[in-house]
Design a binder for these strands. Structure first.
Lengths: 239, 239
DNA sequence: GCGAGAAAATGAATATGATTCAGAAATTGA
DNA sequence: TCAATTTCTGAATCATATTCATTTTCTCGC
C-alpha cells in the first residue's frame, strides 16, 4: 500500500465526487444547461483540475454514463437472481432496466446522448473502452440466463449464439428509451405507455424464440402482476 | 397565384437549398464539424438570413432529419407496394430502412442525434411538429400492411391495436441504428453484422405475432435471398 | 526538519463558434 | 417617384469550452 496507490485512490475518489456533482447539476437544471465552469465551482476545483480528469465535456458525459452502469447492474443482478423460471427472469431484466430509467430519468437521457456519434467520438478512447467494459457484466448476467434456459430446455437450441440471443431485447430497450426522449413524438403516433407496450412486444419476441412457457402478449393482468411482484419481491425498498 | 405565395415558394426553395448544402458539408467533414458560419458561406447567405430560416443549429439539424423522411418514405413505399405476402412486405420495410441508412449513413447519424433530448429540446416547436408530421406517411404505409395482413388472415387478431403492432419493429430499427453509431461497442460484445442480426430477430418477432407464413430465423439462405430479391425487384437502380 | 525538484492545482486568458441586431439594400404599393 | 415595409447583411456580441503560465503542494534525500 505505497504512496502511489493512495494518491491514485484519492484521485479516483475525487473523480467520483465530481461525477456526483455533475449528476446533481443535471438533475437541477437539465443536461442542456450543464457547464464545465459550474461543475468546477460545484466541485470546488479549478478548471484545469477538472480537465485533468476529463479530456472534454463529452468525455465527462460518457464518464457519467459509465457510472450509471453500476446502478443498472445492481438492478439487473437482482432480476437475474430471482427464483423463477428463466423466461420470467428475462422479462424481469427488461423491467429492471425500465425501472432504473424510470427512477433515474437523467441517467437514461445521458446514456442515450452519450451514445450519439457526436458525443462518442469526442470522448477519449480510454473512456469509450471503460464504457464497453462497464457494460460487460450486464452482458454476462443476461448470457447466464440464456444458458440456463437452454440447459433446462426452456429455450430450444437455435441458430443464435448465446451472445446473439439477447440482441432483440437490447435493441427494443434502447429504441424505446430513445423514442421516449423525443417529447410529443409517441403521442403523435398514438402510443400511450411506451414501456408497457415494449413489455408486450418483448413477450411476442420471447414467444417467437419459443422460450417456455409461452405467454399471451395481451395478458395485461399477467404483466401487471409480474410488475408488482417484481416491485415487492425483487426491487423492494429502492429509491 | 399572388406575390405572397411566390415569395413563400422562393423562401422554401432557398431553405431546401440550404439544407442541401448543410448535408453536403456533413458528408464532407462530419456532423461534429458542421458550423453555422460555414453553412452561411456555402449557401451564400448572411448569418442573419440563415437564422431567419432556422432558429438555432439544433433546429437546422432537426430540419435535416425532416428532410430525410422524404427519401425514407420513397423506399418504404416501394417495399410496401411489393407484390408479395404481407409478412414479406413487412420484412421488406425493415430492409428498406436499413438500405436507406446504409446508402445515407449521415442521415442515419443525424436522425439519431436529432432525437436526443438535447437537440430535440432546442429545436423550435414548429420543427418538432414538422418532424412528427413528416413521419406520418411511414406510419400509414406500415399500418396498411398490418390491416392487409389482418384482413387476409395472415395476422391473427390480437390485443395490439393497428398502431401498436409495429412498435416492436420500430424500436428494433432505432435501437440497432443507435448501437451501430457507438463505434467499437458492438464488436466488444461480439456482434458482427448488426443489421443482419436485426433481421433475424425481426423474424423471431414476426413469428411471435404468428404472422403467416412462419419462418425459421436461422434460414440464412432465405434472408439473403430476400435481400437480393429486394435489391433487384424493389429497389432497382438506386443510389 | 530542510530545501531542491517534481507533481498537481489554479483561474485568468484564449479560442471557438453560436447568435444578435443596427444599419443597408431591396421590394412594395400608392 | 418615393415613403413605408420587408428582407438581408455581417461585424459585433456573447456564451462557453479549453489552455497554459504561474503558484502551491508534495516528495524524498540529506
Amino acid at each position: 500500500m505505497n504512496t502511489q496507490t493512495r494518491k491514485q485512490r484519492e484521485r479516483a475518489a475525487r473523480e467520483d465526487e465530481l461525477l456526483d456533482r455533475a449528476y446533481e447539476l443535471v438533475c437541477e437544471s437539465g443536461l442542456v444547461a450543464l457547464q464545465m465552469s459550474h461543475l468546477a465551482r460545484a466541485g470546488e476545483v479549478a478548471m484545469g483540475t477538472l480537465y485533468s480528469h476529463f479530456s472534454s465535456k463529452e468525455d465527462l458525459l460518457l464518464a457519467l454514463s459509465v457510472r450509471s452502469s453500476t446502478y443498472r447492474i445492481e438492478q439487473i443482478r437482482r432480476a437475474v437472481e430471482w427464483q423463477e423460471r428463466s423466461r420470467m427472469r428475462m422479462l424481469a431484466v427488461a423491467m429492471a432496466d425500465w425501472m432504473f430509467m424510470d427512477a433515474h430519468p437523467h441517467y437514461a437521457q445521458i446514456d442515450q446522448y452519450a451514445m450519439s456519434e457526436v458525443v462518442w467520438e469526442r470522448a477519449s478512447p480510454q473512456r469509450r473502452q471503460d464504457f464497453a467494459r462497464s457494460r460487460e457484466p450486464i452482458g454476462e448476467l443476461i448470457h447466464a440466463v440464456v444458458r440456463d434456459a437452454r440447459a433446462c430446455g426452456d429455450l430450444p437450441e437455435a441458430s443464435f449464439s448465446v451472445e446473439e440471443t439477447p440482441f432483440g431485447l437490447w435493441t427494443m430497450l434502447i429504441g424505446t428509451n430513445q423514442l421516449t426522449h423525443a417529447a410529443g413524438l409517441l403521442e403523435h403516433f398514438k402510443i400511450d405507455k411506451p414501456h408497457q407496450l415494449m413489455v408486450r412486444h418483448l413477450t411476442v419476441w420471447l414467444n417467437g424464440l419459443e422460450w417456455q412457457p409461452i405467454m399471451a402478449p395481451d395478458d395485461k393482468a399477467l404483466s401487471d402482476n409480474l410488475c408488482s411482484r417484481l416491485r415487492t419481491e425483487v426491487f423492494a425498498r429502492d429509491t
